[in-house]
Simulated scan of single mutants.
Amino acid sequence: TGSAGRTRGWAASTAKAGAAAAAFLLLGGVSPSGQLEVNVEDLRSNNGLLHICVTRDAEHFPDCENDPAATRESFRVAETRSVRFANLPSGDYAIAILHDENGNSRLDRFAGIPREGIGFSRNPRFSFGPPRFSSARFRLSPHGDVQSIRMRYFL
């Protein structure tokens, strides 16, 4: 009976620990995660790369520089027009996309005007400089979201 008693005691303590962990996750502020699908539209060529930045921080928008929490991915344009990001915590996000046509990993400009395509979540209007985070912001729910982003070219 000693062995059976220890087993029942272990099972009971494990069940209590599991319930405590579940309560911690629910009450401890951990956000449920969702899937984000990003569809890229109106690309002018199949050349180069798409650099996608997904951030929750307005201070690091649109380039995600030095944002340790940002999600960044690069893809060959010829291979994809749609990208999925899984297990992102629920909350507010903004997306910036660069169509790096020559593959040099930066936005080329002429007289300050982008020579390559750029696009943002929610497709906000902008002319001089990128849009504000608030214009591109969307809410990702645990059910997920789809953002269809139209690329814009100025030159």
Rank of each mutant, 00 (worst) to 15 (best):
R72L: 15
F85M: 07
G117T: 10
S127H: 09
F75A: 05
N102H: 04
A78I: 13
A70I: 03
P124T: 08
S82E: 13
H60P: 00
R115V: 11
S74D: 02
S74Q: 08
L88Y: 06
S74Y: 01
A94V: 01
S105N: 13
D100S: 06
H99L: 06
F85Q: 04
N102K: 04
A78F: 13
G91P: 10
S105C: 00
R72G: 02
R109A: 13
D92V: 09
T71W: 15
S90V: 01
R84E: 15
G117D: 09
A96W: 07
N102V: 01
P62D: 06
P68H: 05
D108L: 09
A94T: 02
G112S: 05
I118N: 10
I113A: 04
L107F: 04
S121Y: 02
F128M: 14
H99F: 05
G103Q: 05
L98W: 08
F61A: 03
F75M: 02
E59Q: 10
F126N: 05
S82C: 07
A69M: 12
R109H: 11
A78G: 03
T80Q: 13
V77F: 14
N102F: 04
F128D: 09
S74N: 01
L107S: 06
F120R: 13
N102R: 03
A96P: 00
D92W: 01
D63F: 11
P68C: 10
N104R: 00
C64N: 03
T80R: 15
V83S: 02
A78C: 07
A70F: 03
N66E: 14
A70H: 03
I95M: 03
G119F: 06
N104G: 00
A111W: 09
S105P: 00
L88I: 07
N104Y: 02
S82L: 03
R125H: 12
G112I: 11
N87L: 12
T80V: 15
P68F: 06
F120L: 09
N87F: 11
S127N: 10
D108C: 08
